[in-house]
Write a protein that binds this DNA or RNA. Sequence first.
DNA 1: GCCGGTATCCCCGAAAACCGGTAGAGCGAG
DNA 2: CTCGCTCTACCGGTTTTCGGGGATACCGGC
Lengths: 245, 245
Amino acid sequence: MANADDAFIRQSFDLIDGLDGLSDPLDVQKTIFDLVARCGFSYFAITRLPQPGERIGPNLLLSVWPEGWLSHYDQVGHYRHDPVVRHCLRTTEPFAWSEVTDDPEATPQTRRVMEEAREHGMGAGYCVPIHDAHGFQGGISMAGERIDLPPRVRRAVHLLGLYAWSAAARTTQQRPKPAGRLLSARERDVLSFAAQGRTREETADLLGVSIETVSTHLRNARSKIGTRNTTHTVIEALRLREITL
Amino acid sequence: MANADDAFIRQSFDLIDGLDGLSDPLDVQKTIFDLVARCGFSYFAITRLPQPGERIGPNLLLSVWPEGWLSHYDQVGHYRHDPVVRHCLRTTEPFAWSEVTDDPEATPQTRRVMEEAREHGMGAGYCVPIHDAHGFQGGISMAGERIDLPPRVRRAVHLLGLYAWSAAARTTQQRPKPAGRLLSARERDVLSFAAQGRTREETADLLGVSIETVSTHLRNARSKIGTRNTTHTVIEALRLREITL
DNA sequence: GCCGGTATCCCCGAAAACCGGTAGAGCGAG
DNA sequence: CTCGCTCTACCGGTTTTCGGGGATACCGGC
């Protein structure tokens, strides 16, 4: 049995090396599904974290998922109560669904999500949360009637999930990489002053420009980084090392 | 050779399973060092991300690191220019130091960090960035005169890094959590949300209190820390380690 | 020469944050 | 049992920021 496990691990590692070369998302999907199927899973899904109010549907990167379950899931709004999603926000380590269903503070809605999943042929599952420099980003879930993963296979699945995510993200979305510096010198200036608690007016005086100019710089910085207000922008700019204290 | 690699992978997986049982940080350190030494590394360090303005020193969790290099690193303020740290903010995948030193926009300071590292016996290194639900948290670096990691060994090291981090964080932090003695718990809550770009109204909803209460907390936090507005307060609270990202 | 990015400036209405004062309930320490 | 702190909540008025339009000018690259 241990030999079978090691064989699986070897295969996983080979597959991970192979993922880099793929450019068609369907190839990635097929490759991953072949492997998770060998662990006894019938389904898998790689998904981004939906924005508040958004549905899961448009955020699915790759999936082999029960017919109807996804639309039902979105329709009912299960996302907000899904204990698996909740747990992803708390941990970086992969976990079996069964580990989170006996949550002490489980609500009726929470229980309902899991019951209905079972009715769709997903009585058990395993989830790998994905985090990056900006926090929780999504996850990869595998599901079937029942699962039985030996510890070392779990590790391999963990690693597989991480690279599957990268491959899925890479092949399904063509995003212009802001390789170099994201912000202009002036934008960094105004954010530095903002970090010191300066108002736009003060910053304008200190830089010798008008308050509208400062506002424009702040606005452009917001839209570049994709933040919601100045505070958020300053924090993110700090994290991106665009500014220092 | 492939057999040696597989043997290493098996060992790594066994070690990962064993980490859970350890409670003494020195055991963790010894176990990890034994393994990384087998890959040809002479040093390793597991470190948290320092808060802005802080030094690396107090944030090292576990390390076997060249004498003098750390203090020099802190003294010179290398941290702010270290290309390895910079790269950790952009990627979740492990990388060799050599991959980031030929950065097109390398500054003289950046180059100096790497040159001085080489003089301390660390001509090459490999780094596994660590991210959790709150973003970039730290990393584990391995270094030596020269490295040569076959792809599958890299994967194993990646996984090892993730679990080594967990074990290091678990065993080393005896947390006097009331570290934040200046602000109240609620004040820290509202500042954390503010750091995420939430409005007072959103924060009020999320905390289940009225918007006036949130305003009061923000006001009190401002007057306690002596800051000028919310942005300033968040930045200072971060520096004071009252909140984390 | 055109285009994209940058830097500058302008306007205006809506939304949010700030300010200062007030105040009851709860709780733990002295 | 006070005293102090926290958490909660409200009010009215002022200041600041946000959002979405504009505009002009410079510069560098294809």
